[in-house]
């Protein structure tokens, strides 16, 4: 199947890109890696009249760390570059590990982290780890830009909080909390090239006495959007985590998940997975937190 017709626009600046996007509104789509967009266009699921390619805009392909600013991932940084980045491995290893669990080399060399977020599918693997790390999205627009917490970004399947003419240009990941660890667990049928039947990211920060100082849990494919399991977090926060508490927390996560049945898995199976992955993930994040020097 071939692509339907469209007009290809290649602005040189972000400002110009935002203006084009504002002008053409829902008739336009932003093109970064294209690995989600082009297949959807080939199948005629969407047929935008304009594609606004970001590739000729200077300074969007980077992964950078500065102590004061945290880790910053530019809109054109690919999954493969995140996977191979020494600074990601040092500062936020969970992001590189998550990228390793996604797609294939030849897709990861094209696909971007920002694209995975902006496509906003329920199974977006990059969403849960970025949510537990408290990431923010730098959003440019024809007017004033803004910094949007990833928390409030997902509004429905394929729906984001981006307004007219707004483009995500950067993902900002703050420094992880002291004595904390994060993991992303992805349950799939195949070992590669597969979507998550369920994905769970967990972050645990411990205090001096080994109790849970802070905790975040985020799930993919557990609801129409990636979600935080806030009630499960409440169960754990401030407490010494033992097996009984872990069971209580995972039961709370199972309760607040809203998965659907699809050809890939039933709702009840996904609910079971929520419990298993949350409890396994918290245990693994805790052992990472114990091992963390900082």
């Amino acid at each position: 199947m071939r692509l339907p017709s469209f007009e290809y626009l290649e602005p040189k600046t972000i400002r110009e890109a935002c203006k084009l996007l504002a002008k053409y509104g829902p008739e336009a789509r932003v093109l970064a890696g294209g690995t989600d967009l082009l297949p959807k266009m080939k199948s005629k699921e969407i047929t935008p009249r304009y594609l606004i390619a970001l590739k000729s805009i200077e300074g969007l392909d980077y992964i950078d760390y500065q102590p004061g600013k945290g880790l910053r991932i530019g809109a054109l940084a690919t999954l493969e570059s995140v996977r191979n980045s020494p600074v990601v491995k040092e500062r936020c290893p969970v992001l590189g590990e998550t990228a390793s669990l996604m797609a294939s080399t030849q897709v990861r060399n094209l696909a971007t982290v920002a694209g995975n977020i902006c496509n906003a599918v329920p199974s977006a693997d990059m969403a849960p780890p970025l949510m537990v790390l408290g990431a923010k999205l730098r959003v440019s627009s024809p007017g004033k830009g803004r910094l949007a917490p990833i928390q409030d970004f997902f509004q429905g399947p394929g729906q984001t909080a981006l307004g007219a003419g707004e483009i995500v240009t950067e993902i900002v990941v703050p420094n992880p909390l002291p004595k904390s660890g994060s993991v992303y667990l992805k349950h799939t049928v195949r070992q590669a090239m597969d979507l998550a039947l369920l994905g769970a990211a967990t972050m645990v920060a411990l205090d001096g006495k080994g109790a849970c100082k802070d905790v975040r849990i985020a799930l993919a494919t557990a609801a129409p959007t990636p979600i935080r399991a806030l009630r499960a977090e409440e169960v754990l926060r401030g407490k010494v985590i033992d097996d009984a508490l872990l069971a209580e927390a995972s039961a709370a996560a199972v309760e607040e998940a809203r998965p659907r049945s699809s050809v890939r898995a039933s709702e009840s199976y996904r609910r079971k997975l929520v419990g298993v992955l949350v409890s396994r993930g918290i245990a693994q994040a805790m052992s990472r937190a114990r091992a963390a020097g900082r």
Binding site: E10, G34, L38, P39, E80, Q106, L110
Partner: peptide, 25 residues
Amino acid sequence: EGECGACTVIMDGKAVSSCLVLAVQ
């Protein structure tokens, strides 16, 4: 659609699915 790898070529040193790249890109 980028699932099978039969169209893999190397672009600037990196393996890519050429069915997912616009020629203009």
